[in-house]
Amino acid sequence: MDSSISSDLSDGAVVSLAALAPDRDAMVCGAPRPSLMELGFTPGARVRVIAKAWFRGPLAVRVGSDTFALRRDEAKGLIVKPIPL
C-alpha cells in the first residue's frame, strides 16, 4: 500500500511517514494514535524525517521543536501530506 502511494508524489497525495523522503517537509493528516498525538504529532503539525537508520531501523523525525525516534511500524501508521516545494 505504501509503495503505490509514495510513487505518486504530486500535490495533494498522502503517504505514510515511513515512506516520506528524508528532508521533505510534510503535514500530519488523518487521526494519529493518541500516544503520538501527545508527542506533538497532531493533525496539521509539520514533520520532517532527518535520518533513517539502516536495515529498516528507526526514523528520526522532527516535529515542532522536537526530534523523536520512531520505529518503522509506528511511522507507517502516521499519514502525512508532503508540502509542495
Partner: peptide
C-alpha cells in the same frame, strides 16, 4: 505566534552526521 515552520537547528545539522546510516555507527 509559535509557527509550524521547522527551523533547521544546530542539533539537526549535527544529527545528519551522528545518525547517518554509515558514519553514525
Amino acid at each position: 505566534g509559535l509557527t509550524h515552520v521547522l527551523a533547521v537547528t544546530r542539533s539537526e545539522r549535527l544529527d545528519r552526521l551522528v545518525l547517518h546510516p554509515l558514519w553514525g555507527p
